[in-house]
Design a binder for these strands. Structure first.
Length: 547
RNA sequence: GCGCCAGUAGCUCAGUUGGAUAGAGCAUCGGCCUUCUAAGCCGACGGCCGGGGGUUCGAAUCCUCCCUGGCGCACCA
């Protein structure tokens, strides 16, 4: 981060002095290969056309102009015109002071600049317990919230409760049916109903709570079961999410939109702007005008409004609450829904205000064999079962180690296993090793050095340099993760940092070194442990003191 | 049929939005514990980046046409 900023400022000055503009596509980045130095810049190649000179000749000019920079040890021109910079050790040493001063706020940035963002995720129908796929969305959403907050966004996390419509009626009907079975009535199976064991439990409870249930009018009894069941299931969902370390600030009811007349308001707005019309006894949204394949029905000919209708009203409501950016996290099987939702946002005059992240399927395996995702008892299918078996840390890390829109194999045995197939332990172990060092150091009376030119000068091995350069990159990763909404970048960084720590640990003994070196290394270890904990925190994973 | 996503080492996946000789881990093989946690470290092996064509100084990345797999194409939610 600092290296990039330093070069950016210096290079821009050189370009300005030469009367050149900074090329749009010029980048400053750490090269893949360490032999190319600490930072590599392609600006000379990008300038060729503008300056009407050969890239290497431009590079020569830039190199000459930067000769007096004391923070830079070496500049080289390589390949077609890359400028490769190597910074002085003293430059990297400053990283220790920066991290020490920043403490837990290291990695915080102003990228978001206070932009108000809403992240809506999980939002599973309250018709049954959360399953493993919801867990992936939950981990992703929660981590994204943490990362974007770290990057300077003002973030609110929301759960949209689909408590209106047909699924709810089916839930109520299913509970009532089970209640009748429990009461000894012999009935044919309804066509479309929820069969899980949890339905039977709820049925028993609702009968206990409402003795006269089976004597009531059918519609009334169904409604009662619906409300009762929804409340119980939603309570369960909240408990499961809490156990998984997932935060939602707002629980938003779909039903409230309907009863408050928000859906009708939306229709009126659409009609006014010419985006809605009546035809064939139904009310339609003219989404084809905004890139969708076909127009969509908002109110059916039987008078019911569609799910999409409340969803438009819901997004209208989101924007009216003042969010600059709305992020929806959906299952990948809903991707066909994106064009119409985008069209809706455009019709609401909020083009670009919505960003959809798709979360792909989770294949639950045990020892390589698929675990049936049926509703039968005894199968590991719910999020709660999985978290109970393998732990929240391991599950979350697994979910966050992959790009969200590729399919994920989740092998219960692998995730429990303490090996490199399961990198969460590799990263946590790095933190625990440092924690253990601190304990041992305290016993031996060794204290971490305070930051000074003298103590920093003792961090002089190649391993020290590697570590410092990587620590300097942490803020870049936080920004990249926030910008591209990709929590897995943090996971990647942490695995790299853990590997660097393990390498350091093997090659640079801390406590057995000479007293002042031991203190200096302990000072560095404090920084490393802090950044590991910091990064794990963004994933919602704990940083244990011992393992 | 149309659309979206994916295809990178034997396996699981990265690849900082167009950069240099494409990277990790696992697996396989070979080294390292009388010293801070071996849940670790070091080394070797391993590639037509699904295929063809194009864009340019430069392509795993962008455009185009195919192949393969997944998922969508309701007056369902």
């Amino acid at each position: 981060m600092r290296a990039k900023i330093h070069l950016e400022i210096a290079l821009k000055k050189v370009l300005t002095d030469n009367g050149w503009d900074w090329p749009e596509k010029a980048v400053i980045e750490p090269p893949k290969d360490k032999k190319f130095g600490d930072m590599s810049v392609n600006v000379a190649m990008m300038l060729a056309k503008q300056a009407k000179k050969a890239p290497r000749a431009i590079a020569e000019d830039i190199m000459a102009a930067m000769e007096n920079d004391v923070l830079i040890d070496k500049v080289e021109i390589a390949g077609p015109g890359f400028l490769n910079f190597t910074f002085a050790p003293s430059f990297w040493h400053e990283t220790v002071g920066i991290i020490t001063d920043a403490g837990e706020s290291y990695g915080t940035s102003t990228l978001g600049n206070g932009t108000k963002v809403q992240v809506e995720y999980v939002s599973a129908n309250p018709t049954g317990p959360l399953h493993i796929g919801h867990g992936r969305g939950a981990a992703l959403g929660d981590s994204l919230v943490r990362i974007m907050e770290k990057a300077g966004y003002e973030v609110e996390a929301e759960y949209y409760i689909n408590d209106a419509g047909r699924q709810m009626l089916i839930l109520g009907g299913s509970i009532l049916y089970r209640a009748k079975l429990e009461a000894g009535q012999d009935l044919p199976e309804p066509e479309n109903f929820y069969k899980g064991a949890y339905i039977a439990d709820i049925a028993k409870d609702v009968m206990k709570a409402t003795p006269g249930l089976l004597e009531m009018d059918e519609a009334e009894a169904t409604e009662l079961c619906t409300v009762y069941g929804k409340d119980v299931i939603l309570e369960g969902i909240k408990e499961d999410l809490a156990a998984f370390g997932v935060r939602h600030d707002v629980w938003f009811s779909e039903k409230s939109l309907v009863t408050d007349g928000k859906v009708d308001e939306t229709f009126a707005d659409l009609t006014k702007s010419g985006m809605g019309y009546e035809a064939d006894g139904a009310y339609w949204f003219k989404s084809t005008e905004l890139g969708d394949d076909k127009d969509r029905v908002l109110r059916k000919s039987n008078g019911d409004t569609t799910y999409f209708a409340s969803d438009i009203a819901y997004h209208d409501n989101k924007f009216k609450r003042g969010f600059d950016l709305v992020v929806d996290i959906w299952g990948a099987d809903h991707h066909g829904y994106i064009p119409r939702m985008m069209a809706a946002c455009e019709a609401l005059d909020k083009k670009g205000g919505l960003h959809v992240i798709l979360v792909n399927l989770v294949n639950l395996l045990r020892d390589g064999e698929p675990v049936a995702m049926s509703t039968r008892a005894g199968q590991f299918e719910t999020l709660k079962d999985v978290v109970d078996e393998v732990g929240a840390d391991a599950s979350r890390f697994m979910f966050l180690s992959r790009k969200s829109d590729s399919k994920l194999d989740f092998d219960l045995e692998l995730v429990k296993q303490k090996s490199m197939d399961n990198p969460v332990y590799y990263v946590q172990y790095a933190h625990a090793r440092i924690a253990s060092l601190k304990v041992k150091a305290a016993d031996a009376g060794t204290k971490a050095a305070t930051v000074s030119a003298d103590s920093l000068a003792l961090l002089d091995t190649e391993y020290d340099m590697q570590m410092l350069k990587l620590l300097d990159q942490y803020p870049d990763f936080v920004e990249a993760a926030a910008r591209t909404q990709s929590p897995h970048l943090i996971s990647m960084f942490l695995q790299d940092l853990a590997a660097t720590l393990h390498r350091y640990y093997s090659n640079c003994h801390v406590l057995s070194a000479e007293a002042d070196v031991a203190s200096a290394r302990l000072m560095l270890m404090n920084c490393v442990a802090g950044v590991i904990k910091n990064g794990l925190g963004l994933l919602g994973v704990s940083a244990p003191e011992s393992m």
